[in-house]
Design a protein around this nucleic acid. Structure first.
Length: 398
DNA sequence: AACACGGGGTG
DNA sequence: CACCCAGTGTT
């Protein structure tokens, strides 16, 4: 293990050479991005939160819409949560936008509705950690603060052969130290953004374009022919598999039964079709029956089919509707399956389609509603639920 | 220190 | 399909 003592030290001349080469490259190649049009701290903040774990091309349309919907910190502080989630729909890590609203409210209460202009106050805000505080401080306020993200760790680990595990939070300080030693005091914001652009486009994780890299002669890892050994990163944890039956249930008006998810945890407060968890064994049995059914494409309804066998899907429908009236739903057909990989788990969903026969005495749960599909665009659905909607629309178009 | 938290890309 | 990309908050 390399410790900070073992890491190569550059002379002042080498540091100056690195700054000059990096900034010259940035002046020529910098990407023209909407949040680079000016130094408005609010726009910088929004872009930096969106860019966490998310690529630039994905962020651009979200950024424009967000600034339209919430033009000021005050607008964000007062926004309706459903609209907030809709603004973030599909971006992932939805706590980011909830934390932003909390921070906006703090700014209205404590900072005169402005972004604070120093690292200490920035760090006191929800959702702003060491990286984002450094990014805002340097880009919006010209402070020579490090903003160490994955790109920066990749570039510096290759420059200095830093062998510390970048997944370990302890390592961040080593990289921050090296950035402090090298950062341009004249143009700290450009310096940090140049590092991130370089990591994103040239000094990439695989197949780095070393021949066109403005820092190509400075990488110690390259001198040692070990460029792609860096950065050092330990293995990620294995994903957990979860199995569900997904339920598309329509009433006579053509509305669908939807549920709002719990206020905490995965995909909090977002909308979903009812999901009933089943164990792997039952899921696989069901999947097998399902495929047999789809191959047949006979007159038989899934209701008949399931009723004769496990009754699992029917039971799930009854559970979702909180009723024991066994003839309340007529299961028309299977819609297909949806698979979705999260960072730490994988969902397997078999989606069934049912029609409600009687609805008068039916009690919905607190978090359930009948929703006209015309209103789907107004609700925030996570990706797996968007995939389910696609299956439903396929069926409607047949 | 370990885990929770989405979604996208490449080969 | 396997594999890569990773900041912040909570416990």
């Amino acid at each position: 293990m390399t410790t900070s003592k073992d890491i190569i030290e550059w002379t002042e001349e080498q540091k100056q050479e690195m700054r000059d080469k990096l900034l010259a490259w940035y002046d020529k190649e910098k990407r023209l991005l909407p949040w680079r049009e000016n130094k408005d701290p609010y726009r910088i903040w929004v872009s930096e939160i969106m860019l966490q774990q998310t690529q630039v091309v994905t962020v651009i349309p979200y950024f424009h819409r967000f600034m339209e919907w919430f033009p000021t910190i005050k607008d964000l502080a007062e926004a309706d949560e459903d609209k907030l989630l809709k603004a973030w729909e599909g971006l992932g890590y939805y706590s980011r936008v909830r934390n932003m609203q909390s921070a906006a409210q703090t700014m209205v209460e404590k900072f005169d509705g402005q972004m604070p202009n120093n690292v200490k106050d920035l760090l006191s805000l929800k959702g702003i950690g060491p990286y984002t505080a450094g990014a805002i401080a340097s880009i919006a306020f010209d402070l020579p603060e490090p903003a160490v993200d994955g790109n920066v760790m990749r570039v510096y680990s290759r420059l200095f052969c830093i062998e510390d595990d970048i997944a370990d939070p302890k390592s961040r300080k080593i990289f921050e130290q090296k950035v402090r030693e090298t950062i341009s005091h004249e143009r700290p914001g450009d310096f940090n953004q140049a590092l991130m652009d370089l990591g994103a486009t040239i000094c990439t994780p695989t197949s780095p374009k070393i021949e066109i890299d403005p820092l190509r002669d400075l990488y110690e890892a390259h001198k040692q022919n070990r460029l792609e050994e860096f950065p050092v990163k330990k293995k990620k944890v294995k994903t957990v598999h979860l199995y569900y039956l997904g339920l598309s249930i329509q009433n006579k008006k053509g509305e669908y039964l939807l549920e709002k998810r719990l206020a905490e945890g995965l995909l909090a407060n977002m909308w979903t079709f009812p999901l009933v968890e089943v164990d792997k064994k039952h899921y696989q049995e069901m999947e097998k029956e399902w495929l047999g059914y789809q191959e047949d494409q006979k007159e038989t309804t899934l209701f008949d089919f399931v009723a004769e066998d496990s009754g699992l899907m029917k039971g799930a429908f009854l559970e979702a509707l909180e009723t024991s009236q066994s003839d309340v739903v007529w299961l028309k057909q299977p819609l297909g399956d949806v698979k979705h990989v999260f960072s730490h788990r994988k969902w397997h969903i078999l989606l069934g389609n049912g029609f409600l026969k009687e609805e008068t005495e039916l009690m919905l749960k607190e978090n359930q509603s009948w929703v006209d599909p015309k209103d789907f665009p107004n609700l925030a659905f996570p990706k797996p639920q968007q995939k389910m909607i696609s299956l439903i629309e396929e069926l409607r178009n047949k």
